[in-house]
Design a protein around this nucleic acid. Structure first.
Lengths: 189, 189, 189, 189
DNA sequence: AATGAATGAGGGTTCATTCAT
DNA sequence: GATGAATGAACCCTCATTCAT
């Protein structure tokens, strides 16, 4: 019963791995099939084309990522602490989901990215962005454009995980706490 | 002698434009030749292959970028103000050099990037990184790993320019000053 | 027993429609299955392969077509009027059976056509060709090869229907009568 | 000097042969390359894609065909005799250009055919169609739609050549004369 | 120095057919 | 009888690179 969907999952997993390893350019449908242990043709049974395969993978991974980051978000905390929670969690989850993060970063700069996709993602991110909006409304963070606020916090968090993945730094608990501090200092009023 | 370098420059310029417009995947050697107004074959007279062409372009643009950012760096300023100068200048230059920035960002995540190239770049960046090292030594910024310090300042500065290029924000003088502040707050002790 | 033939008929009908709409090249077995509302696999229960499906469809449609054209052929008429009857009827039926005609025309020029199939068809056409043979024997039409006689009459009749289908002409009763005249003039002695 | 164009001609020739032998469906670009003795890639240096290759071939062959048919058309003849000349010549040329005729016939029913192409062809055919228009104006042929007139003459002429190619009849001088007669009888007033 | 024709491997995709269920 | 997932060969096309001119 889940065997029928097993193949679709294998294809998605293989795509994720290959793109994180070799990039979009180095990931052909034939390689995906090979890594997934299926024939090339069957991919088109589950996905209408390469673009659709990659889009669906992106949406799925982004969804998963957001779920992990917002899981355990405690609304009874102060907004300040909710912001810090989200930054810290973004780093932690990004560090753990190395392949997924590399894929998602690459996607953003690939020709597969389209405004409609980011609209979909923005809608999914609402639970997350709401916290930052509230912080701005309560005037505990600077009155900067939303995009700048996210860049200074979640963007930085993601970048730290990238540096960790590249081996440039080691993101242990202490460093994660320090960077969470730094992000907060960047936006606090 | 100059004529021959003229053609090399045309090729590099065409490559830069095309990659910033269409990405690596959408930039074939034939298109480069077409845009540069030269034959496809002659590219291989100046560059041994596509990889080499793109590497040389990256090094050249990075060099140019660093020169522009560090130009006018006043050693008589306080270290704090030198740091702020570099952050502000990084934003300003990045905003002006849109195509170059997009190319360099794409390069970093492309399969053309290699550790040796980043070593070369790191050497070029010494005048720039020295300022940050001094700031750390003088204990006016947090004792974070160098990579993290750069990420929180120059990385953020670059990212702001990207957002500006995408139209997500408008990087006017006021916003540039605010983000420079934010970066400084992130790393100051 | 009837239910099973119902599915076979659906498949044949879908094939006819699709080929008349999109041609042989644009008609995949998957599309046939979709249009017929059956699974792709079941087609191979009724037909051993695509070639066989198309052959059977051709024979069936040709048979149907000949039946319609020869229905009502009155042996008590003069041979001249029997010939004219057949020409007129060929035009009329062809105009009405647009899809079937387009399919049969395409079949003739496709790689699915084979001499054996035309032999089978020729046998079916005997009631029709007999009239022309008698006309030749009675020396009321020119002593041309049979194939030429058919070409000048039935071939032309079919072509008129094609032009009608393409919209190049409008085959109303008057034009049908005129072309019937023309065909007769072409072969009469 | 003509060597550079030699390859384009080889490709066109190979395409013509293969389509006349195996039809559109049986003629892959790889087979064309093989038959022409060139690599598959070079075809796209001369033609932007398969569609363009086939279109250009069709236009070229049609042009050639019309030139041969109208060559030697004597305006000092009576219109009746000019019509007969064109019919006879159409048969003769079609019989000689077997491959070209089969290709052109297949093209008409292929998905590569488009209204714009037929417009282009119609313009080329003007010297030919003008003769028939004059015959209608002089009221020596029936007042039938142009398309029907062409069908009854040139269409039939072409069909005879097809039958000859298939071996159904042998189009010798006598038969050609007889069919020319028949076509004339079909349309004369 | 310079051209652009030529190659051939590899790209994404389609499709007739098979087979476990 | 019936399904539709699965295969794999073939399809059209692109591209970095080479080489005769």
């Amino acid at each position: 019963m889940e065997a029928s969907h097993g193949k679709e999952a294998l294809i998605l997993k293989a795509t994720l791995q290959l793109i994180s390893e070799y990039g979009f350019h180095g990931t052909s449908m034939a390689k995906v099939a090979g890594r997934a242990g299926v024939s090339a043709g069957i991919i088109y049974h589950y996905f209408s084309n390469k673009e659709s395969l990659i889009e669906k993978l992106y949406i799925r991974e982004k969804h998963h990522f957001i779920n992990l980051v917002t899981a355990g978000l405690d609304q009874s905390l102060t907004v300040r602490n909710q912001v810090r929670f989200l930054v810290r969690k973004t780093i932690e989850v990004s560090v753990l989901m190395k392949e997924e993060m590399m894929f998602m970063e690459q996607f953003l700069q690939s020709p597969y990215n389209r405004p409609e996709i980011q609209s979909t993602v923005n809608a999914m991110q609402k639970p997350l962005t709401d916290v930052f909006l509230r912080a701005k409304k309560e005037q505990i963070v600077k009155p900067l454009p939303d995009a700048v606020i996210y860049m200074l916090t979640l963007g930085t968090a993601t970048k730290l995980a990238q540096q960790h993945a590249e081996g440039a730094v080691h993101a242990d608990d202490e460093l994660i706490e320090q960077v969470t501090d730094a992000c907060w200092e960047a936006i606090r009023l």
